[in-house]
């Protein structure tokens, strides 16, 4: 019984952290069809921002939940203005340019912080379930993951800004005919996506030590989750995060974390072969 609780919590935790990792990319890819390969580096920057802020004496929750998204959102805005906006509609060029960007950011952070591991400790103490010791921070991540997803869903579905953004993505001509500036909407959407990545990076920072190359670990997972999810931002990300999180965690618990990751990657290859448009290309296709 205790073991069942542990397994469920661990699976929920894996799902939530995948959803967090993928959230920013899902907004940027799902809405704008821009594949941002520097996404992992945005997460990494969020993590560094949180760590630097905490070391400067700022409260850890403020650092993770406020400072990290603002800083990374600002970086995203700069990137969009300098690079991405010239490449809309050219998917492969965007992939290449953002890959260059990811190398550039990794190099930049290495120059500033050095090629060493930094980290902060988790702010929540562990708790016991029967004979098992669990990390309390996992529960925080589960809550954060589902809150972020719910937030995106509500913002897209029930706010005027979300409606305009969705409209501009479907038909930018029509949106500009109605007096909205598509360029500005793209800019804001990309910035919001970057800020979400910063938030996720900040929240995940206390879990593992951070190095300048941490982004590489995230980007593949985020990429796979989002692409397998398909075009619907929330439904797609949640369904593929659930699928992959469960597979990863079950295999991890029954063998090693490496095999957990390998199982997830193999599942992704098979899934894309069967459903080339992602899960929401076939199911839940009317969802946001």
């Amino acid at each position: 019984m205790d073991f069942a609780v542990v397994v469920i919590v661990e699976i929920l935790y894996a799902v939530a952290s995948l959803a967090l990792i993928a959230a920013g990319l899902a907004v940027v890819f799902g809405m704008m069809r821009v594949i941002n390969l520097a996404h992992g580096e945005f997460l990494m920057l969020g993590g560094y921002t949180a760590i630097v802020s905490v070391k400067a004496g700022i409260n850890i929750y403020v650092a993770m939940l406020v400072v990290a998204p603002i800083v990374v959102g600002a970086i995203g805005l700069i990137v969009e203005r300098l690079v991405i906006r010239f490449l809309y509609g050219r998917m492969l060029d965007t992939m290449l340019a953002t890959w260059g960007l990811s190398l550039l950011l990794t190099g930049l952070v290495t120059m500033i912080f050095g090629n060493t591991t930094t980290g902060i400790s988790t702010p929540i103490a562990g708790y016991r379930v029967g004979a098992y010791q669990l990390s309390g921070y996992n529960l925080f991540i589960i809550a954060a993951g589902f809150l972020v997803m719910a937030g995106i869903l509500l913002a897209l579905r029930y706010t005027r800004a979300g409606l305009i953004a969705r409209g501009a993505m479907q038909s930018s001509d029509m949106a500009s005919g109605l007096g909205h500036n598509p360029q500005r909407i793209y800019m804001i959407t990309f910035t919001v996506g970057a800020a979400l990545s910063g938030l996720a990076g900040g929240i995940l920072a206390p879990l593992t030590g951070l190095t300048p190359t941490t982004g590489g670990l995230y980007v593949a997972k985020a990429f796979i989750t989002v692409i397998s999810g398909g075009a619907a931002v929330v439904a797609g990300t949640l369904s593929s995060a659930t699928l992959f999180g469960t597979i990863t965690q079950v295999v991890t618990l029954s063998s090693t974390p490496v095999w957990g990751d390998v199982a997830m990657l193999i599942a992704a290859v098979i899934l894309l072969r069967l459903l080339p448009q992602g899960i929401t290309g076939r199911f839940f296709s009317r969802q946001v």
Binding site: V83, F86, D93, G100, L103, G107
Partner: peptide, 19 residues
Amino acid sequence: VNNAFVLGAILVLVVLLLP
């Protein structure tokens, strides 16, 4: 200057200016 930094900058610039 970090190596990855320069390579990344080259890639971005080539895609933008010299596609």
